[in-house]
């Protein structure tokens, strides 16, 4: 299929160099982060794109592009989780779970609430300290510690069943 006339105009200025740099260098890691938060690779790709676009729209207010995009990725993933919840209210009954659980810990992670899942991923995958996680999640560091503690406990209970 060939490109036809009328695609979006290139009159719009190019992205800021700082954002392009983040895109080139860290996009894959952000997709992986989003994948760990959503459990869905294709959704992760889309949400990371959305996060870059959101960052572009707020570019004048962005001081640390990498941190800003990461926060946007986490927020988009949490929003996606909420939207999914809304959609599931109207969805047909889910199919019975698969009998074979190939990765119990991964499955258990997917059943955590959004905040606990995000806190655990940011701690044990991104290796962020409490203060940075709190900044990304928009909560107090004490809440981060509580979320991680309770999340780990929930994971252990899940896989010990």
């Amino acid at each position: 299929m060939r490109v036809v006339s009328g695609e979006p105009s290139c009159e719009v200025a190019s992205w800021p160099a700082g954002l392009v740099e983040v895109y080139v260098e860290r996009r894959v890691s952000f997709v992986r982060l989003a994948y760990l938060l959503t459990g869905n690779a294709s959704v992760a790709e889309e949400l990371v794109h959305d996060a870059f676009i959101a960052t572009l729209n707020r570019w004048e207010a962005v001081r640390e592009p990498g941190a800003y995009v990461r926060a946007a990725v986490v927020n988009h993933c949490r929003s996606w989780g909420r939207r999914r919840g809304i959609e599931e209210r109207h969805a047909p009954a889910p199919a019975a779970p698969a009998e074979l659980q190939a990765d119990e810990l991964w499955d258990a992670l997917g059943r955590l609430d959004d905040r606990r899942r995000a806190a655990i991923v940011l701690r044990y995958y991104e290796d962020l300290p409490d203060a940075d996680i709190a900044s990304v999640l928009g909560c107090r560091p004490g809440t981060v510690r509580s979320a991680i503690h309770r999340g780990l406990r929930e994971l252990r209970q899940e896989i010990d069943r």
Binding site: V28, V31, R32, Y35, V121, Y125, L152
Partner: peptide, 16 residues
């Protein structure tokens, strides 16, 4: 257990 979680996340991230 924390190490186990770390390893799982690293392993699954490689799915991408």
């Amino acid at each position: 257990f924390e190490d186990e979680v770390r390893a799982m996340l690293s392993r699954r991230a490689a799915d991408v």
